[in-house]
């Protein structure tokens, strides 16, 4: 009962302004690249800006978007991404993704990978992403 009350209290008073949910990565071998996907849920009435992602698991980490031009597909680095107030921004295949370049270890299915997302207002959010197929 006490535990339940504690949980309820925590839920009520610690609804974070900004949440990162459902983080997952593509499987890939050491030395190769992977992509990280997640949802950023902004419960506040202020926008926030994701401007950096770091991880010990890759040599280089960049925020990317996939684009289409003249029937060709490509991807490029973006400096930042704004999450509007009371909205959810989804990083997903074919859209925004975080590039993990030159992995320092194998990303095996069901493995977990640590990363930190840096926001202008809400500072750092630490995540553990799951490696899975699609």
């Amino acid at each position: 009962m006490t535990i339940l009350l504690t949980i309820l209290t925590l839920l009520n008073f610690h609804t974070p302004n900004l949440k990162v949910e459902g983080a997952w990565l593509r499987p890939a071998g050491k030395g190769m690249n992977s992509a990280l996907y997640f949802e950023i849920v902004n419960n506040s009435n202020k926008p926030d800006t994701l401007y950096k992602v770091t991880s010990p698991a890759a040599e280089l980490v960049q925020i990317h978007e996939t684009f289409k031009t003249n029937g060709l597909m490509g991807m490029r680095e973006v400096r930042f991404v704004v999450v509007k107030p009371h909205s959810t921004l989804t990083f997903q295949p074919g859209g925004y993704h975080v590039m993990f370049i030159k992995l320092k270890k194998d990303f095996k299915v069901n493995g977990k990978v640590n990363a930190v997302l840096y926001f202008k207002t809400n500072k750092e959010i630490k995540i553990k992403a799951l490696v899975k197929r699609q």
Binding site: L60, T69, G71, L72, M73, I101, K102
Partner: peptide, 24 residues
Amino acid sequence: VVALQGDTTFTKSGTPVYFFTHTD
């Protein structure tokens, strides 16, 4: 099928990094 190689950058360890804009 078109595959255009983009600019090359390098990681700290000197590995070249480049991507393609390509036909899907």
